[in-house]
Design a protein around this nucleic acid. Structure first.
Lengths: 181, 181, 181, 181
DNA sequence: CATGAATGAGCTTTCATTCAT
DNA sequence: AATGAATGAAAGCTCATTCAT
């Protein structure tokens, strides 16, 4: 009875996330994941069809959430208020993601070759396009790009100062809002 | 005698840069580099001691240039003017780098495990530290981080609009200056 | 009660036969069989002890039938009539086998390493030995080999002409009889 | 010095041929080939791009030779003489091939999934089509199929009698000629 | 200045098989 | 009668690297 019945899938995801965040997707081998979990590589294949499948499974909740934000925004006119709200929703999403996830988001580029990498980038580009006019000046567009970027960057790119994670996240959001104006 | 002398080393660097920029450092193999150059892998080892050595050679001019900026700044008081000048010098550096180089700069994280990756990140952190007070609020520090980031981001992260590279670069610099205030 | 009772065993056999015929024994995996049946691999092991066991079960009806032909022949003198009768009985056997079975017979060699492969080949050799004198000239022996071979070959090796299966089978038998003379 | 300069490629081919003939293509692993040669698997990849590449290299001389026979025949009218000549040329080809090669020919079907398997089968079908009318009766076509088949079958399918290889080959050719009439 | 040949370690993936439930 | 979960072994293949020539 109870919550038994294999939590292995989740444990694989957690461990994979850890390792992907530490060393990057490419540099993390299935052997490493398996060893850290004390299972065999073959066990990973019982739960996932491929290495890519693991990383996809990590991202797809997030992608769905971003899609929800996009959908929400699309039903509304673009006003200063809705733009700020979009940024805030994205920030909340980032805030609620596990730290490994956020770190992984920092370099989607390293997953360039992966379908899921492209899908995520595409969402980011979509959000930027929603925030600005397609034919706005480069500067305006860049500001939107950097707004979204700040939200994650705040957590990792900030020198190890004596700020708390909360403060860093708040700084990210503040700057983001400033940038989308 | 004279300036003839093996241009092979340079050709290796150029090709490696191209490929690293296209696929990332990890995903680029020496075989790919050698093939694109129509030489053998062993030839690469005549000119460089290791794969890492190649990437190091690519970065070390840049690192020296950044060090020069840092040194220049250290001899001066931190004033609004010197801060803006630092940003401008860094922007000029980026602007003068080959496009592959700039792209590579975009994801130093993918070279995490490499010494050179760390050295470059360290320089970036140093510049940020120079631009702000060590105990400035998180927001101020973040702004400096994002200022430097904008300069490169402008070139690649900008949606494929009908802006020219020059305009994109200008936008990056403008935003950077705005951010360092 | 009665003949209901798990038809799963038979369904496994049928599916395995299909796949073995399509891709060969080695290249067919238990996973493929299980998936096509919408059961798990473990279920196969409930009904069979091993992969080899499955293929054995497919062949052993056939082997028994061939043994019957051999036994029948052994009780008789070798005359032109009995030789022709042997060929005819073997042809009828082939004709009554499911198409997958016949196809599988076409390349027993692919099951070389399997006991059952050897047993089948041995039967074929036995029939050939019964049809000729042990010390008949090579040509005579070869004709008997090819006689039996024609019967199956007719079905599959014939260019896709506008002949019906019946015609092809008849051709095989005709040639076989011609060859055993 | 003299014929030095790496005979490894040829040694790989010879060993691979041996093993493919013994166990079949699928069941032969690169490890087995490498071990028998006392080299590493990676060495095989220095000389060939893939496992399939090895088997292709084994077959392509043969395929070219068959193509030559086909081309030769196409320039001539189909007469009893040219048909017999075609069979004789094919027999000479088989006779001159290394024994492993002939054995491998015996079950091209086991290489079904390989391009080269298909190409070889296609050649055999082409030769059969050249020997008969496209709309000849099934029996006539079958005879041509079996004619070509006899040539190889003679060597291997013949019970281990006290015939010499030469006698077996001769028997194959004799039967083949009888069949093409 | 460069190549031809080879290696050892590692990769992702697949397989037949087992066993508690 | 069948499943969920896992395993050990092996497969084909790629990589950075070495070294005699």
């Amino acid at each position: 009875m109870g919550e038994r019945r294999s939590d292995t899938r989740e444990r694989i995801q957690a461990t994979a996330l850890e390792l992907f965040a530490e060393h990057g997707y490419e540099k993390t081998s299935l052997r490493q994941i398996a060893e850290r979990l004390h299972v065999t590589k073959a066990a990973l294949y019982y739960h996932f069809n491929s290495k890519e499948d693991i990383v996809v499974s990590l991202f797809d909740g997030l992608i769905a959430d971003i899609d929800a934000i996009i959908a929400w925004f699309r039903e509304r006119p673009r006003t200063p208020e809705t733009r700020r709200e979009l940024v805030q929703r994205y920030a909340r999403l980032a805030h609620d993601s596990p730290p490994g996830m956020r770190r992984l988001l920092q370099d989607v580029r390293s997953m360039r070759e992966l379908t899921v990498g492209g899908e995520l980038s595409e969402r980011m580009r979509t959000m930027v396009r929603l925030l600005t006019d397609r034919d706005a000046p480069a500067l305006a567009q860049l500001k939107c790009v950097m707004a979204l970027a700040s939200i994650n960057a705040a957590m990792f790119a900030l020198p190890e100062t004596d700020t708390t994670p909360e403060e860093r996240h708040a700084a990210g959001l503040t700057l983001a809002l400033e940038l989308v104006g």
